[in-house]
């Protein structure tokens, strides 16, 4: 069963993750859903697929009032990211969903009305969560052509979507990366195949390396902390991406 775990707390400003689910069916990719709370408002980043909605909703509702969630953030358009949209809107039709303008007419196939969506321009934007600034950082072509990360300057946390993702075996169940070298083996093939552009990758690495980041939180796999954040950025900068097709 998925559980909500707090990864950052500073008074009413918190980050929590509904981390990987050991009970999920094997045919579904495992995902992390991140909840950013600031006072009476919350934002759910990459709310997940329809099939895991009940697990995510239950995990969140067990800890907080789910009506505090006012915003959804979709890093990109994939079904494991946002196909639960209609169910979230069933629960609260007032929810706003922030996403790349590029997917503005695609994501509504999952649900929502014209009022649901807040388009993020290519250059990014700053979202306000009860006065807390959250920066939508461009990560286009990593892997989606309209793709954003979400950066919390105050908490020094970067939600990185598919960047930093790892497809971990069941025995590697830790919430955080414990051994970078062992962990990164589960990331290599994913990044080589899913990340399509070396140019986009280097641009991302250059921009993100200038940010203060204590935690880099991917949608799949474990969270990078401390020095592992820098290790990951350097590793990613050196990796030849767009090259992972199996022979």
């Amino acid at each position: 069963m998925k559980k909500l775990e707090f990864i950052y707390e500073d008074g009413a400003h918190k980050w929590a993750v509904v981390a990987r689910d050991p009970e999920k069916p094997n045919h579904l990719i495992d995902t992390n859903e991140y909840l950013v709370l600031n006072g009476s408002e919350a934002l759910l980043a990459d709310p997940g697929g329809m099939e895991i909605f009940s697990a995510v909703f239950s995990a969140i509702s067990a800890e907080i009032d789910p009506y505090t969630i006012r915003h959804l953030f979709a890093s990109h358009q994939d079904p494991d990211v946002i196909s639960s949209l209609a169910l979230w809107l069933d629960f609260n039709p007032e929810l706003k969903c922030h996403l790349s303008w590029l997917w503005g007419s695609f994501i509504p196939h999952f649900g929502g009305t014209a009022d649901t969506f807040v388009a993020i321009p290519d250059e990014g934007a700053t979202l306000s969560l009860g006065g807390l600034a959250l920066d939508a950082i461009p990560a286009h072509y990593l892997h989606s052509s309209g793709n954003f990360n979400l950066y919390d300057r105050k908490a020094r946390i970067l939600f990185s979507g598919d960047v930093g993702a790892a497809l971990l075996p069941p025995e590697e169940s830790s919430l955080y990366v414990e051994n970078f070298d062992r962990h990164i083996r589960h990331s290599r093939d994913f990044h080589r195949r899913w990340m399509g552009s070396n140019k986009a990758k280097l641009s991302w690495c250059e921009r993100v390396s200038r940010l203060d980041i204590d935690m880099l939180c991917p949608q799949h796999g474990a969270i990078y902390r401390g020095e592992d954040v820098k290790r990951f950025i350097n590793w990613f900068a050196d990796l030849d991406v767009g090259s992972g097709i199996r022979d």
């Binding site: 009940s54 239950s58 509702s61 067990a62 789910p66 169910l87 069933d90 629960f91």
Partner: peptide, 22 residues
């Protein structure tokens, strides 16, 4: 959608109360 919310209803009372109106 009904089926997904019915799954939520299997959780404990504190979770169920959020799903009941939906």
């Amino acid at each position: 959608q009904h089926s997904h919310f019915m799954t939520v209803m299997k959780a404990n009372k504190s979770v169920r109360k959020w799903a009941e109106p939906t």
